[in-house]
Structure formats: structure tokens, C-alpha cells
């Protein structure tokens, strides 16, 4: 079966600034594919080009067998998009929003009203359907935002950071709904800067940074790139000098790489447990107080750190 989405050397520039610098990947039907990267990495721009909102500067993408540049209308009928922002009319009710957005996808009459009932049930807002969106909580608005993207039963759903700025309970509900949609057969392209979400949801992950796809594969394939190393995270005080600690730890046996982050020092090592004692001793000698220590086994965060030298949240 051919991939439902194929991206070939896609470039998108705004003036002299290249937001996406020639990325290529494909997504198989039935997959959840996550595009993981920090803010400003080019995730939303990629989604905007794939959803035909903006034309690529060069390159092309094929979705459901149609080119985004040559057959945008066919592409639009195949995809559903859940944008990062709450693209809803706050002065309309959920029901009215669904009515309007359904009509934009050519739905009408009984087909539309029965589909609206299904989606309302799916997002758990049937009893609140006649309330204006502005009276909803942030989580409820997010659910309506997702519901709009599902109205026309798309084959491929783009979800652009759908959990930004919501409470843990709503976040959990959204992640569960993504898994349920996928279980029902929907292919999902999910962008996020939360490593845990990509790990939990994805069959495959593409890591994007500064508009470039720097890694691609299953989680196992990606973590293999960091050669089974651990990451030891030292949490130091706000007033401490991380650079002094880094200088002191450079020559400790077993330290492969040291990176400072916000009031933290991340040490990549083959065996984190064996490194704790010498590290704490050196810090103590320098008079630097270590508040706590975390050991992280290889994960996507470590992969990102390994590939870029920066944490995802930087």
C-alpha cells in the first residue's frame, strides 16, 4: 500500500528566512507519526504547507495520492486539521460552530446533524452543545477544536500541538482520543514539543530542529542512536555557576558529554549510577550544592540532546 503522505524535499521560505529546509518523510496509512521539535522548529509551517494553506517554496508533498501544489482541493477533502490555536467562534455555540464548519466541508441536512451528534458524543460535550464556546473551559474548547477536525471523517488528521496550555486531565483525554481515533483506522500526523506525548502515541517519530529533519524512525531506532547511554541530571541552585561545575567534571572517567540547561547540568554517560559519587564529591569540593539528581534512561529527549546539544524545552 502506498504511503498516505509523501513529502519530498519540502522548502518554505518567508523572505530570506527558511522556516523549513528541505525535509522529506512519508507516513503509512494507519500510523500515528509525530513531528517532535522545540518551538520555532518548523512544525507548524510544515503542517500549513501540507494542509495547502501556504504554497511550498520548492519541493512537493503527495497526500492521498494528490499533490498539495497541483490538486489542493482533493488534498483538502482527504485531510482534517486541528490547528494549534483555538480556531473557533467564541460567540457561537458548539452546535453552531459544528454546523458552520460542517457546511465548509460540504455537509448539510440530516447527514450533518447526525455527524454533529456523533462528534459531540465522541468529545463528551453533548449536554453542553447549546452553550456558547466562550463559556467553556480551556480543555472543553480544545475538545471542540479537535471535533471540528473530525466532522468530515478525514483519512489523515493533522494535529498541531493540541495539548498546549491545558490541564493534565484534558491532556490525558486528548491523548486517549488520539489513540482511539487511530484504533478506528485514522492516520494521524501529530506535532508536539512534549517528548512524552511523542513517546506515548507514535509508531514513528521525526525530530525537527531549525527547519531540518534531524532524525526519523521508531522510538527504538532513535534511542539506539544514543548508544544506550544514560543521562544524569544534576539540579543545582539558581545562584550556582554551572560552567564551573562543568569544568570540574570534564575529566571524570565515564563522562561522555556535559551540557548546561536551566539550573541543571546534564551528563551523558554509559552508567549513571557509577557516576553519582564522583560527581557529587567534585561539586562538594567546589562548594556547589546539588539539590537533587535524576537518572534518565535513553529516550527521545536524550536523542534530541544527543543530536543538537540542547534540551527540547530550550
Amino acid at each position: 500500500m502506498p504511503p498516505i503522505l509523501e513529502l519530498h524535499d519540502l522548502v518554505k521560505k518567508y523572505g530570506d528566512f527558511a522556516a523549513v529546509k528541505g525535509i522529506s518523510f512519508d507516513i503509512k496509512e494507519g500510523e500515528i507519526f509525530s513531528l517532535l521539535g522545540p518551538n520555532g522548529a518548523g512544525k507548524t509551517t510544515t503542517i500549513s504547507v501540507l494542509s495547502t494553506l501556504f504554497s511550498p517554496t520548492s519541493g512537493d508533498a503527495t497526500i492521498c495520492g494528490h499533490s498539495v501544489t497541483r490538486e489542493p482541493m482533493e488534498v483538502k477533502r482527504c485531510i482534517g486539521v486541528v490547528p494549534q490555536e483555538l480556531a473557533l467562534y467564541e460567540d457561537l455555540t458548539a452546535q453552531e460552530n459544528f454546523n458552520f464548519w460542517g457546511s465548509m466541508y460540504g455537509l448539510s441536512g440530516k447527514a450533518l446533524s447526525s455527524r454533529i451528534d456523533e462528534v459531540l458524543e465522541q468529545i463528551g460535550l453533548t449536554d453542553k452543545a447549546r452553550q456558547r464556546i466562550k463559556t467553556y473551559s480551556g480543555g472543553m474548547k480544545r475538545r471542540v477544536n479537535i471535533g471540528v477536525g473530525l466532522l468530515h471523517k478525514p483519512r489523515l488528521l493533522f494535529m498541531d500541538e493540541p495539548t498546549v496550555g491545558i490541564d493534565p486531565q484534558s491532556r490525558r483525554a486528548i491523548l486517549d482520543s488520539v489513540k482511539e481515533l487511530n484504533r478506528q483506522g485514522m492516520t494521524v500526523l501529530y506535532t508536539t514539543h512534549y517528548m512524552e506525548e511523542a513517546q506515548e502515541l507514535s509508531h514513528r517519530v521525526g525530530i525537527i530542529d531549525h527547519g531540518e529533519l534531524i532524525a526519523l524512525g521508531t522510538q527504538a531506532e532513535l534511542t539506539r542512536q544514543v548508544q544506550e547511554t544514560d543521562t544524569l541530571i544534576l539540579h543545582i541552585g539558581e545562584n550556582e555557576d554551572p560552567q564551573a561545575l562543568i569544568d570540574a567534571l570534564k575529566d571524570v572517567p565515564g563522562v561522555l558529554r556535559i551540557t548546561p540547561t536551566n539550573h541543571e547540568v546534564a551528563i551523558v554517560t554509559p552508567s549513571a549510577e557509577e557516576l553519582i559519587a564522583p560527581v557529587v564529591t567534585r561539586a562538594d569540593r567546589l562548594g556547589i550544592k546539588v539539590h537533587s539528581i535524576d537518572i534518565r534512561e535513553p529516550n527521545l529527549e536524550a536523542v534530541f540532546l544527543h543530536l543538537t546539544g540542547r534540551a527540547l524545552r530550550d
Binding site: T52, K76, P83, A87, W101, V148
Partner: peptide, 13 residues
């Protein structure tokens, strides 16, 4: 600004 225009334009409209 609120993204509803973009949402209309990415529908088959």
C-alpha cells in the same frame, strides 16, 4: 489572527 480564516481556507473552500 484567531486562525478561523486559515481553517476556512484549509477546508475545501
Amino acid at each position: 489572527r484567531q486562525g478561523t480564516l486559515a481553517r476556512m481556507l484549509i477546508s475545501p473552500t
